[in-house]
Design a protein around this nucleic acid. Structure first.
Length: 917
RNA sequence: GGGCGCUUAGCUCAGUGGUAGAGCGACUGUUUUACACACAGUAGGUCCAAGGUUCGAUCCCUUGAGCGCCCACCA
């Protein structure tokens, strides 16, 4: 450990130092609060200090915001650790549902596949693979900047304990009546194919047209004429004198007839709309009359809630296209296409009064920027009223404090008027909702248990599938793709403890069954003649086009399987139903407690599902077709539902990512178990984060903590500055305006990068990034290095710690020591107030100008005087030691490296040395 | 439409009710036994504008302008 200044080069080179120092810290174990130094020269505190890192998405890589936030947290944590607190800074990552799913889907796309080609389970294992490979990259990047995180406690929002906790929370809220399932109008992203919450919306300005459409004597303005097809009322303000006499009346208006095929000239059709009164209508805007489309406008849906007597009509589907309810004229068109088409039709029918240019904000998806469509949909919701109040109270009472204070307003304003939170998402990657339903009647079963499981599998692909040729009784074998699909299905079914496979005798099914059996390590196969495909009579072996071309039969846009049509000489759906029903119940009786795979065919399985769901033939249209080798899973409940059926199916939805991240500070520390960590470290002290997730995340953590763990999860919320480009633009990877902190670390060192970030983080306003401060940081590290070299060369045999703090002898001594004392005091104050920029400016001024420029120069004179030499040595080493300690939280690498070279009686790393008072 | 923040040296930003500061840059010296990634100096500002409060305003108040951000169901 003893070393001479001559060993130190005249320049500080961070590259030689940083990785080595970080390794030393890791090896010391001191990031872990359970492994504090034993031979401490000062008293350790029993009090804890804990911070949980805002978990970065596993899809992310370190950006400037992370770098700043990591530095802020590291400063706090390192200081508290040096003060002797039992200090924990806990790392981890977020599964980031939609974001991650999108990334993996993009990855799949390169192979020409969609997630539907894999099926849910194999897609999910693919995401896990992805996360194994890339999910921890960002955590390694946190190491590069010097974060003193306790890696032994790394958590992930999808690890198994976390999943259990999330389930428990769902069940808790459900039983309390705060989570409910309901059909409401929600924001829908057609590209991500999922619902979104109110906070997951962004707005984009769009130039569009405002159409004034005639509704009889009224004129109604809209930017979305296609929603006219879903109008179910007109609304006026109750005290609007112009329209008073119409309120409550149904008026007849001329509209376009959506039943006329698209190719034909548009025709008029008389429809009837009720006029209702609602205070949300602004009589001063436009004509004071509003069309009400409850299914496709959030505001209109609220009007509907106040006027439940009006109907709801859904004309836009989840694919972002017009539904058949919109009428054949528009069905299948994208909303934008339908908008143009209907505007054209209305104009040619003389129903458009005028069109104005108009600029407004369109809502877009925060993950993929697609235009959102409000649609009417069954979702899970969390009642927000009580939870919001609790979160409001936490700030009102001072239990949670924002720094700077003004962010309180953002938080409170949102909480004061939250709508119920839509927590279900229709994606696959995430925490699945722990609920099942009776297959027949839909009754909700919480955390359903099963005594047996049925996996219905459609056969893999054949060559006839590709060309969509009916292959009812035709015995076509699997093709290469089909065999791979079957193998995939088999691997999905591994670990499902399959006892038995029952298969149709036809080649395509039997081969599928055999491949699955092989994948499962040899499971018994029973062949059941009754599981064969429906016989299509004269249509056997034809594609629809061929059948129509030969005049055998004519369909209008309907598939054979989807319609109730029976081809001549074909099997009727009633006959099919009878055989399927008999077969199902026969096997159910025989194999009640087993896990069974049934391999069959499209039409047969469809009829089977229709029987299980108790749908009649026309209703069966709602059943989606099964892909090749797709698996449908139904469980057998130990007890039958009131309706008599004992088949249950799982809810397919997953929870909003923020539902689980809301539990982060609790669950990472062990909740709901009363673990030692939970008792020691919950609640945490500080949360440092970016301002854009104040409501999305901070608010939800606060009410979750209060409601579930009975304590607010943290006391102080630091909202750090947002780093912008020099021109004040947002840093964005896609625009190429981003700065990579790893690049800065590479060029200038981690300490310099931290210095540059903190130096600019003044007053918590946005910072316009400027690299020169990182360069200043590099120079400062060098200054520190050289001052230390000088001092090491002057102090003779002295070693740390000194028996006493040295007393000043000369005026220069006095000035320096009083400046040091003042610096300690003010630095302390700044850090405690989270004024990190001010703190580093202060220290810089002291060290560079007062210590180096003045005292070091003065010391050269003092060494010439033998009476002063020893005291000067003491003051130099004392001031240097204190300086290194004070700076260590800000610039940990260089300070630690210098500390290593100081002559000392003990051998502790600087990171656990005592904070100077 | 509502709210918030910002406007100070060439650039990035501190700051104070009493003659205005840092870092970087520019310029002039200095290779003086830690550091030229340094040292000693110098120049450079109607503190966005107008009005008000005050003995005195860059700071407090009002209004306005510019920039940025957030929220919002004005169809």
């Amino acid at each position: 450990m003893e070393s001479k200044s001559t060993e130190l080069s005249s320049q500080y080179n961070p590259k030689d130092v940083e990785n080595r120092i970080y390794r030393r810290w890791m090896e010391s174990g001191f990031f872990n609060p359970d492994k504090r130094p034993k031979s401490k020269s000062y008293k350790l505190k029993s009090k804890s200090f804990s911070v949980v890192v805002p978990p970065p998405n596993i899809t992310g890589s370190l950006h400037m915001g992370h770098a700043l936030n990591a530095t802020i947290q590291d400063i706090l944590v390192r200081k508290k650790r040096m003060e002797g607190y039992k200090t924990l800074w806990l790392p981890g990552t977020d599964h980031a549902g939609i974001a991650t799913q999108n990334v993996v889907e993009k990855d799949l796309k390169k192979e020409g596949k969609t997630r539907h080609d894999l099926g849910r389970e194999r897609f999910i294992s693919r995401v896990w693979e992805w996360r194994e490979k890339y999910g921890n990259i960002i955590l390694d990047q946190f190491k590069k900047i010097g974060s003193s995180l306790d890696w032994s406690r790394t958590r992930f929002t999808m690890d198994s304990e976390y999943q259990e906790a999330v389930k428990k929370v769902f069940v808790y809220y459900y039983k309390k009546g705060w989570i409910y399932r309901g059909k409401r109008t929600i924001n829908w992203c057609p590209r991500c194919a999922t619902s979104l919450s109110d906070l997951e919306i962004e707005y984009k300005e769009e130039k569009t047209k405002l159409y004034y459409i005639k509704y009889d004597m009224f004129s109604v303005a809209t930017t979305r004429p296609e929603t006219k097809l879903g109008d179910t009322a007109l609304a006026v303000h109750p005290s609007d004198m112009r329209y008073q006499k119409y309120i409550g009346e149904a008026i007849k208006i001329q509209s376009v007839d959506p039943a006329i095929p698209a190719g034909d000239q548009p025709k008029l059709k008389e429809i009837s709309l009720k006029i209702i009164a609602d205070t949300s209508v602004d009589p001063a805007f436009g004509t004071g009359v509003v069309k009400v489309t409850p299914a496709h406008d959030l505001a209109d849906f609220e009007i509907y809630q106040r006027h439940p007597e009006i109907p709801v009509m859904q004309v836009i589907g989840e694919n972002g296209r017009m539904t058949h309810e919109a009428g054949v004229r528009y069905a299948g068109l994208k909303t934008k296409e339908a908008r143009e088409k209907i505007a054209e039709d209305l104009a040619s029918l003389g129903l458009i009064e005028k069109v104005e240019e108009y600029t407004h904000n369109t809502s877009v998806c925060y993950r993929c920027s697609s235009v959102l469509e409000p649609i009417f949909s069954t979702q899970w919701f969390m009642k927000m009223e009580k939870l919001s109040q609790q979160a409001i109270r936490a700030v009102g009472s001072g239990n949670v404090r924002f720094h700077p204070k003004r962010w309180e307003k953002i938080y409170l304003d949102w909480l004061k008027n939250t709508r119920d939170w839509c927590i279900s998402r229709q994606i696959w990657w995430g925490h699945q909702i722990p609920v099942g339903y009776c297959v027949a009647c839909g009754t909700i079963k919480l955390e359903p248990k099963t005594k047996g499981n049925w996996y219905f599998v459609r056969h893999g692909e054949t060559d006839w599938n590709i060309v969509r040729r009916t292959q009812g009784s035709s015995d076509i074998p699997l093709n290469e793709t089909g065999r791979l699909q079957a193998k995939g299905a088999g691997s999905t079914l591994k670990e499902r403890h399959i006892d038995l496979i029952i298969s149709s005798p036809q080649k395509r099914a039997k081969e599928t069954a055999e491949i699955i059996a092989r994948e499962l390590g040899g499971v018994e196969i029973i062949i059941d003649e009754e599981l064969r495909e429906r016989h299509y009579g004269v249509l056997e072996g034809f594609t629809l086009a061929e059948a129509e071309a030969k005049g055998i039969v004519t369909f209008r846009g309907e598939s054979i399987t989807g319609s109730g049509f029976t081809p001549p000489d074909g099997e009727t759906l009633e006959e099919l139903e009878a055989r399927v029903n008999e077969t199902l119940h026969r096997h159910k009786k025989q194999h009640a407690h087993k896990n069974i795979v049934v391999v069959s065919h499209g039409a047969t399985l469809r009829t089977l599902f229709r029987v299980l769901r108790r749908l009649d033939i026309p209703q069966a249209k709602i059943l989606p077709p099964m892909h090749n080798a797709q698996i449908m899973h139904f469980g057998i409940a130990p007890q039958a539902c009131k309706c008599g059926s004992d088949f249950i199916e799982k809810d397919e939805n997953v929870l909003d990512t923020w539902f689980s991240s809301a539990l982060w500070p609790m669950v990472t520390l062990g909740w709901p178990k009363k673990t030692k960590d939970f008792k020691t470290f919950y609640p945490t002290q500080v949360l440092s984060t970016a301002r854009d997730i104040i409501n999305l995340w901070v608010g939800r953590m606060v009410f979750s903590g209060i409601e579930l763990a009975k304590k607010t999860p943290f006391k102080d919320v630091i909202i750090h500055a947002t780093i912008l480009t020099k021109d004040g633009k947002r840093m964005s990877k896609s625009l190429g305006t981003g700065i990579d902190p790893l690049d800065l670390i590479e060029r200038f060192g981690a300490d310099a990068t931290r210095f540059g970030l903190i130096w600019q983080a003044m007053g918590n306003q946005d910072m316009h990034w400027s690299e020169e401060h990182v360069i200043a940081g590099k120079k400062f590290a060098n200054k520190l290095w050289n001052a230390s070299r000088f001092i090491l060369g002057k102090i003779g045999d002295l070693s740390l710690p000194l028996a006493h703090a040295p007393k000043p002898k000369t005026a220069a001594d006095k000035k320096l020591l009083s400046a040091l004392a003042k610096t300690k005091k003010q630095l302390e104050k700044h850090i405690e107030k989270y004024e990190f920029g001010q703190a580093i400016h202060l220290f810089y001024e002291f060290f560079w100008h007062e210590f180096c420029d003045q005292y070091l120069e003065a010391s050269k004179q003092q060494f010439a005087n033998p009476d002063l030499a020893e005291r000067t040595q003491q003051i130099l080493i004392h001031t240097l030691a204190d300086s290194l300690k004070l700076l260590h939280p800000f610039m940990p690498f260089v300070t630690e490296e210098i500390w290593r070279h100081l002559p000392k009686k003990t051998n502790l790393p600087l990171m656990v040395e005592e904070w100077p008072k």
